[in-house]
Design a binder for these strands. Structure first.
Lengths: 201, 201
DNA sequence: TGTACATCAGTGAACGCGCGTTCACTGATGTAC
DNA sequence: TGTACATCAGTGAACGCGCGTTCACTGATGTAC
């Protein structure tokens, strides 16, 4: 029985739980914890405990507390970017809308991770229309660009991008913060985030 | 000098700082703190300290920690509702858009209070289309209702309301969480939240 | 008018909590000669 | 092949922190007779 063999291995050599580095194990455990607790309840000590390692061991792999959640956020952004681009494959207004719907669904499926990703970023100096990290905004902008009428200015692009992003981000946050009945809102995602409603006029 | 007289009064009788009840003084101090620190950094002890009272005195006026921030959120919702309805006075699509713009400006002007108001609410059981507390959603729904084409269903109303709310809430959150350059985004509020873009098709 | 009493807002010491972080350390692993 | 040494991941005790909350208390205020 393969699964038995696996668990025996793990019991026999506890270190094998974090094969390939405690760093990876800690990140995996962080993601796992985010499935069941609030983003701000993440603590180094809890993660270390669950991984089966002393509280201070993580300092070999992360310079301080903040760098672990921010690494998790990076992973989250990569996953989100992948889901957005997969959903938007068909291109055009329909693909763009589908990718907006995927954005909201991602948030509903991984609420704490999503919240962590978008927790207040330290004020950076962006050039005016530059993007925040994570490249989710890059995807949005790429999606928008193909849909703008000829002769639109960069301001037009930016406004259309921000409008679309606001729509999906707001819907996600309202659901996550329980300002809105989750079931009812989720059932309406496709309707609210439709090719019509993100019309880049 | 009036201002001197004031401060002399306060010095002479320290209790006068919380005239009319420690409760009001604590709430006022809470609002004041929210202007300069994060919503989740609010603590009973800090407020008591700033009001000049022992840490435990607040328990005479608030049953526990949570009830203070949630009272602050209530105040915030009342202010928001007032600003929304003032902005929307002229009625129609223009008034509705103006009130959406006011929503975003409220958030930008009082970021921590806004965040506190919309921090995750305990899951309640709403009837399907019922509203969260605070009546901001009531105003939104009222605004929407006058603009729907005849023959629209309650589902139509709800979808239009949620779309408009998502747009302004998302724009507000993206700015507050620094996902977007604040200056650039604020300069575009009117453009992003326009009578066109919240067209209740 | 004076005395006895209840009420109740605020005090200050104390509690346990989990946290991030430091420190000197152990002990296994690999490498140089 | 064997010995000396450096490296470095993980340990565990300890630190100080601010927090929410409890507890028995004080002392002013008002009220009943």
């Amino acid at each position: 029985m393969v699964s038995n063999a696996n668990s025996v291995n793990i019991n026999a050599d506890e270190r094998s739980y974090h094969h390939g580095g405690l760093r990876e194990a800690a990140l995996a455990e962080g993601l796992r914890l985010l499935e069941s607790c609030d983003a701000d309840a993440l603590s180094l000590r809890q993660i270390a405990r669950n991984v089966g390692v002393s509280a201070t061991a993580l300092y070999r792999h992360f310079p301080d507390k903040n760098s672990l959640p921010s690494a998790l956020a990076g992973i989250g952004f990569a996953q989100l970017a992948e889901e957005l681009s997969r959903a938007g494959l068909r291109g055009g207004a329909e693909g763009f809308a589908a990718s907006g719907q995927a954005y909201v669904r991602f948030a509903v499926a991984r609420p704490s991770l999503f919240r962590l990703m978008f927790a207040k970023m330290p004020a950076e100096s962006h050039p005016e229309f530059d993007n925040p990290p994570g490249s989710a905004a890059h995807l949005l902008q790429r999606g928008i660009r193909g849909m703008m009428p000829p002769g639109s200015t960069p301001h037009d692009h930016y406004a259309a991008m921000l409008r679309a992003w606001s729509l999906v981000h707001g819907l996600a946050m309202l659901i996550l913060d329980r300002q809105v009945d989750e079931q009812a809102a989720v059932a309406m995602i496709d309707r609210i985030v439709s090719a019509d409603s993100i019309n880049v006029g």
